[in-house]
Design a protein around this nucleic acid. Structure first.
Lengths: 222, 222
DNA sequence: GTCTATATTGTGATAGAC
DNA sequence: GTCTATCACAATATAGAC
C-alpha cells in the first residue's frame, strides 16, 4: 500500500522532446474528457501520447490515480476563476459581465470540460468534496460564508435601492452558472436540435457572450 | 448478424410476479443512470433486478442493446413534453410557466436523468441524431421549423408591442432549458458547494419552481 | 424462461530486458 | 526511462441442462 516514490530528476540537457509525464497527462485529459473515465482505455491514452502503455503505470501507477490527476486539473481550470470573481469586491454588474466573458472564452477552448466534470461528479459524487477543498485550498466551511456574505450584501444593497427584485444568493449563483455552462454541457444536443455544425455553434456562443450579461441583469432589475 | 426473434407470448395466468423484461429494463435504468453506460456492470443490473445475469442476454442480447433501450426510454421521458409545450399555441408566459413547472416536477422524481443524458451524449454524440428522430417520430427537418416559427412569431409580437427586448429563438430556448435542467445535472456539485443534504436541495427546487418563471420573463421584459 | 457452468475476449497491471 | 512479453482477472457472452 505504500506508494513507491520514484526519483525523477530530468536532465534538462536531454529534454529535446516535451516532458513525458506532461505528455501523458495531456493525452489522458484528451481521452478522458471525450470518453469519460470508465469508457477510456489506457491503450488509447498511450497511443494519443505516443508512448508505450507501460509508461502510464510507471508515471501514474494506476488508471485510478491518472484519472484523479486529470479530474483535479480539469476542475482546477473550471472553478477557481469563478469563485475568485464572485468573491471579489467588484460591483455586481461587473462580476456578472466578467464571469460570463471569462467562462465563455475559456469553454470555447475546452468545450468538453463541463460535460466531463458533470459526468464524473454524477458517477462519483464523493469526488465533489475533494473538489471543493482543492479549489479552496482550505476548509470550504470558511470560504463559502465569505463569498456568500459579500454577494448577499451587494444584492441587498440593490434591493434596498429599489433597483432589483429580491433573490436568494443560491438561486443567483445557480442561475448564472447554468446560463454559462449548460450550453457547453449540452453541446451535442443543442447542435443536433438546431442542425448546427461547429461554426454555427461558435457564432451562437459569440452572440451569447455579448447578450447574456444584459439578459441576466435585466432579469433582476425592476 | 440476423436478430433472433424470440416468441414471448406471456400467459397472463402465470403473471403473479411482474413482467421480467420490464423488471430488467427498470433495473438497467437504475444502474445505468447512476454509473453511466460504460461504468455499469451487467452483473449489477441482474442483481438489482433479482434475476440471473444470463437473462439479460436472453432478453436484450447484448449490453449495447440494453443500453440503447435505456437511453431511448430516458430521452423519451425528458424531451417530448418540452417540445410539445414549446410548439403549442399557448401564450408565451404560459409556455414558460408550464415548462418550468413540468420539468422541475419531473426531475425531482428522476434527478439522475439530466446528468445521464448529457453524459451519454457527450461520450456518444452520434446518438443525438437518433434521439431527435425518436422524439419527433419524423424527420427533424420538418419539426424544427414548426416550433421555431410559432415561437419566433410570439417573441416578435411582444417585441413589437414594446413589452420585450429582442432575443433570438435559439438563445431563448437554451436559456430556458439551462435554468431548468442544469441544477439537476450539477446536483452533486451544487449540494457540496452549498453544504446541502437532500432536504435542502429539495427546498431549493421548490423555491425555484415558484420563482423561476418570473425571473425568466423579467429578463425579457422592458 | 430461468438457471449453472463455461467460453472468450478485453483490459489493467507487472516483470524484466535494454 | 522506455520497451516487450506476459500475467491475472474482470466482464461480456454463450451453451446446454432443467
Amino acid at each position: 500500500m505504500t506508494v513507491k516514490k520514484r526519483s525523477r530528476a530530468k536532465s534538462p540537457a536531454v529534454a529535446a522532446d516535451a516532458d513525458t509525464e506532461q505528455r501523458i497527462l495531456d493525452a489522458a485529459s484528451t481521452v478522458f474528457l471525450r470518453r469519460g473515465t470508465a469508457g477510456a482505455r489506457m491503450q488509447d491514452i498511450a497511443a494519443e501520447a505516443g508512448v508505450n502503455h507501460a509508461l502510464l503505470h510507471y508515471y501514474f501507477r494506476s488508471k485510478d490515480r491518472l484519472a484523479e490527476a486529470v479530474f483535479r486539473r480539469a476542475a482546477t481550470r473550471l472553478l477557481p476563476p469563478f469563485v475568485a470573481i464572485l468573491g471579489s469586491d467588484l460591483p455586481l454588474d461587473e462580476k456578472v459581465a466578467r464571469i460570463v466573458e471569462h467562462e465563455l472564452d475559456q469553454l470555447r477552448e475546452a468545450p468538453y470540460l463541463p460535460g466531463y466534470i458533470l459526468s464524473e461528479l454524477n458517477h462519483h459524487p464523493e469526488r465533489a468534496a475533494q473538489l471543493v477543498q482543492t479549489l479552496a485550498g482550505v476548509d470550504p466551511e470558511r470560504v463559502r460564508p465569505a463569498i456568500f456574505a459579500t454577494l448577499a450584501r451587494q444584492i441587498d444593497e440593490r434591493v434596498k435601492a429599489k433597483k432589483m427584485r429580491p433573490i436568494a444568493v443560491e438561486q443567483f449563483i445557480v442561475n448564472l452558472v447554468s446560463l454559462c455552462i449548460f450550453p457547453f454541457a449540452a453541446r451535442p444536443m443543442v447542435m443536433t436540435m438546431f442542425g448546427w455544425g461547429d461554426e454555427e455553434f461558435a457564432r451562437f456562443i459569440d452572440r451569447r457572450r455579448r447578450e447574456l450579461p444584459a439578459f441576466f441583469l435585466e432579469a433582476l432589475a425592476r
